[in-house]
Design a protein around this nucleic acid. Structure first.
Lengths: 231, 231
DNA sequence: AAATATTGACTGACTAGTCAGTCATTGTCA
DNA sequence: TGACAATGACTGACTAGTCAGTCAATATTT
């Protein structure tokens, strides 16, 4: 009997939740399609899981909390993921993949290398630092050692590609005479370093001393390209 | 009977360890066997706890494992620390404090600023990157958001001091004409950034692509001070 | 009605923290 | 000095609670 009441409540909740269908996609279709529905569920779980993992770390995150946040029963999670661990791994993949895709959609290389890098990095700052994505990076740094497969994946898909891209830009800059330091091409990490610092700073020390990442980046680029003449 | 063996072993250990009484205070005070022993225990617990926390993170670390590694019963931990959480916090303090102390023991500023920074950073690399201390930094990055008091402490004792020191050096470099970029003084983080990257790289990606931190540092300094003439 | 999807109560393994008891060490007294 | 008492550091079995993962019951879709 307790069961019945609970079920009724659950049913009510579901019915209610089904109406305000404010999904990202604007289609008014009833979504009675089972597959669509399942995909939505999965997306909700991924979203909720990311939130929780970022806030508490892998070990301290409870599946019950993820389920509650996703508006789903715990069992449902196991319809989509084998266990907590592989959920974490798949989650990182799921979130990272579209980022990689966008990286691959290269903007046409026009203008000076400095402008290219500045606009690219500026975009990066805006979309990563201080956002959920930035927190994800910190999460990977935090849990990487215990999830080699995650670290591997991240290295392969993001780090190595990102560095390769940076290296190409640096080579271009060197060829065009914009960059003096030829050795820089050996360490594209140096180009990225301030951005990484900003990500970490944001989540650890922002409250103590706010950091203007954009401005820091500009100073860093001045170091590489030489001081800029008046804008 | 098991008990007897353990006790005997402990006694033996104590006798051996009691001799090299290298306390900070130089007083030859007796330090009654008992107190010495307790201090040793505490040190063993701290050491073991650091190892475990670094390897597994805060939440996934079992006190039983720490106790076992320290050669101590679980209850003993609670004679030294209030609970797991405050153990973690105190542990970070305990390990960091001597580092800060050494930072404060400034080396006399002789030679060029570049040499100063290079030797300082070189030392840093050797003592931090790829060592337990480096792992501790990563641990702080990982757990910081969930332990504000740890992040606060680390910021106050290490980050702010380190940055202030760097800023002083940069100012000196600017005054002496070794550094062109005046704005660099506003972001000493840029000076530190490659070192942080190296710490993180070491623990996440070393296996995929080894990173010569020393060399990277050199390139980075070339960026700041200008390319170096032949060594 | 059958097939499929979802639920959430339940289980069992695991662990932070406790505490009554032990015993080496230290202190006291003859 | 040697015998005895007091101390408190240390132990580890135990408690109380947590949480990942399961599955029979229920709901929904076809």
């Amino acid at each position: 009997m307790t069961r019945k009441l609970i079920q009724a409540a659950a049913a009510g909740k579901k019915a209610k939740a089904a109406t305000p269908n404010s999904r990202a996609g604007g289609d008014a279709a009833p979504l009675s399609n089972r597959a669509t529905r399942a995909a939505e569920r999965r997306a909700a779980i991924v979203e909720a899981a990311m939130e929780e993992f970022i806030a508490r770390g892998f070990a301290a995150t409870r599946l019950d909390d993820i389920a509650k946040r996703a508006g789903v029963a715990k069992g449902t999670i196991y319809l989509h993921f084998k266990d907590k661990e592989s959920m974490f791994e798949e989650l990182v993949r799921t979130v990272i993949v579209p980022v990689v895709a966008r990286l691959n959609a290269l903007p046409p290389p026009t203008g000076s290398v400095r402008d290219l890098i500045e606009s690219f990095a500026g975009n990066f700052m805006k979309e990563v630092i201080g956002t959920r994505r930035g927190d994800l990076v910190r999460l990977i740094v935090a849990e990487g050692p215990r999830f080699p497969s995650v670290a591997d994946f991240y290295y392969r898909e993001v780090v190595s590609r990102g560095l390769a891209g940076m290296r190409a830009l640096i080579d271009l800059g060197i060829a065009r005479g914009e960059i003096r330091q030829k050795n820089l091409a050996r360490y594209p990490q140096i180009l990225i370093a301030p951005a990484m610092i900003a990500v970490i700073w944001q989540s650890l020390f922002q409250r103590h001393a706010p950091l203007d990442a954009q401005d820091m980046l500009r100073v860093h680029l001045d170091l590489i390209f030489g001081e800029r003449r008046a804008t």
